[in-house]
Computed example of a mutant assay.
Amino acid sequence: MTMTLPFTDQPPACITDDGSWCQQVYRLTENEWLAASADWLLARPLRILMILALAFLVRFVARRVIDRMTNGTGERTPALLRPLRERAPQALGALVSERRAQRAKTIGSVLKSIVSFLVFGLAFILILGELGLDLAPIVASAGIVGIALGFGAQNLVKDFLSGVFMVLEDQYGVGDVVDVGPASGTIESVGLRVTTLRDVNGTVWYVRNGEILRVGNSSQGFAVAVLDLPVAHGTDVDKAGEILARVGKEAAAIKPLSDDLLEPPEVLGLEKITNEGLTVRMTVKVRPGRQWATQRALRARIMAAFEEAGIAPPLGRIQPPNGP
């Protein structure tokens, strides 16, 4: 009884291809099976390793470039932010650097994720091609899975995209005083999915970016301190206006209040009349975020000046109750 060998006595035809792996392996080993399988055993694994090595190298270089573009020292603006519009008020002082660093870090994180997805995605497709797999069904299946995930995670995608545009457009940043609808307060951090802010009571609010339909930012450009001063009926409005103008002029020359004023206070005069009394209004343009401190300081000075001039508050003074 004789055994039949899986290979014929004839060597594989590929050994005649000059420079082929098959020819090289056959010359070294004179083994027909190894020569015929050289493409699968050596050539394809080496090409796959080269694809992976090149993918990791490209990803490493791209991430290093992104890191260099997002790093800023001191007052230096990161290179990545220079082409983008920046609305950070200089009144924030040290927070400006922190705001820039966080914004650059967030944009850099997005770019790194995109680079990793593109590089490894392309490498995965090339490796599948080296293995001889038909890519059409795989691409179709990936598309169906992507659509299903998109529907299932649409809120997450919505939050993420909203966060990306908020960071790119610099709608707000660390240190800004904002009103985002569900909550208002000072921004502590801006993420791609959630914005964190703290209100005047110290409560920390986590607001999903996709749920923010409008943003009122009180820390960009300038702010206006509006003072509505109530006075009693029968008050000489012209006299009250003179007192407001005098106090505003004095405040514009007194530090540190004068540092917050961008323009001299403007007396608008009588604002409204109610059953309780009259309201006189004065406005002043101030640095962003300093309107509330300016209102408190000016209101204290104005009320003291009104009292000194004999201008009564609405309905007169509240008298303490008589004893029994």
Rank of each mutant, 00 (worst) to 15 (best):
T4P: 07
P6S: 11
P6E: 11
D9F: 10
P12G: 04
I15Q: 07
D17H: 11
D18N: 05
G19L: 05
C22D: 03
Q23P: 02
V25P: 02
R27D: 10
N31I: 08
S37C: 07
W40H: 13
L41C: 01
A43W: 08
R44Y: 08
I48M: 13
M50Y: 10
I51D: 06
I51L: 11
L52D: 05
A53C: 13
L54T: 15
V58Q: 01
A62D: 01
M69R: 14
M69G: 07
T70N: 07
N71P: 01
G72W: 08
G74M: 07
E75A: 13
E75S: 12
E75F: 12
T77F: 05
P89G: 10
A94L: 10
L95C: 08
A101N: 11
R103C: 01
K105I: 03
T106A: 13
G108Y: 10
S109C: 09
V110Q: 04
K112G: 13
I114V: 15
S116C: 10
L118R: 02
G121T: 07
F124P: 00
I125T: 06
I125W: 04
L126V: 05
V139H: 08
S141E: 00
S141D: 01
I144N: 02
N155Q: 14
F160W: 15
L161P: 02
L168R: 07
Y172H: 07
V178D: 04
V180A: 12
T186S: 13
T186L: 06
S189H: 15
T195R: 07
L197A: 12
G202Y: 14
T203L: 11
V204S: 13
V204L: 14
W205F: 15
V207Y: 14
G210H: 03
E211I: 03
I212C: 04
V215P: 03
N217R: 09
N217I: 05
G221T: 08
F222D: 05
F222C: 09
A223E: 04
A225W: 04
V226N: 02
L227Q: 00
D228P: 01
L229A: 01
L229Y: 00
A232K: 03
H233D: 06
V237A: 06
V237E: 02
D238E: 12
G241C: 15
L244Q: 01
L261G: 03
L261P: 00
T274Q: 01
G277V: 00
G277M: 00
R287D: 00
P288V: 03
G289H: 01
A297S: 12
R299G: 02
A300W: 04
R301G: 06
I302G: 00
E307S: 15
A309V: 00
G310I: 02
A312M: 09
A312E: 15
P314L: 00
